[in-house]
């Protein structure tokens, strides 16, 4: 479902970004969206549609679980948290991404 992902993020990095922000603790969709924008100082802007699709897809794959709860502001919301499988996935994705970016940089530096 990559077609909904775009605009503000590199294709294929949405899962990585969401998993990463969940690694700090359970969060609801609205919170994740805000955290990504704040943390990246507005550079990373994941469309909400893509965010929710990714969350449900990852819930099906067992990387995250969800539970209804109440937010700090007293609002009812669905909270997502990482499962052990999700943590393993995050480590894997981080590693892959780092290696990819390093490769890209090496290419950009040109022949030695």
């Amino acid at each position: 479902m990559g077609r909904r992902i775009g605009g503000g993020v590199l294709p294929g990095t949405a899962d990585l970004l969401i998993l990463k922000s969940l690694s700090e603790g359970p969060a609801h969709g609205f919170g994740i969206s805000k955290a990504l924008r704040t943390r990246s100082e507005g550079v990373v802007e994941l469309q909400d549609a893509a965010l929710y699709q990714a969350l449900h897809r990852m819930a099906r794959k067992g990387w995250v679980t969800s539970e209804w709860g109440v937010s700090d502001q007293g609002r009812r919301a669905k909270f997502y948290s990482l499962t052990p499988a999700g943590e393993r996935r995050l480590a894997q994705e981080e590693e892959d991404f780092r290696r990819y970016i390093q490769g890209v940089f090496r290419v950009l530096q040109g022949p030695a």
């Binding site: 479902m1 909904r4 909400d48 549609a49 929710y52 699709q53 969350l55 449900h56 897809r57 819930a59 099906r60």
Partner: peptide, 9 residues
Amino acid sequence: TRSYCIAQS
């Protein structure tokens, strides 16, 4: 998004 999420869920 709604139908995608429902299907996944």
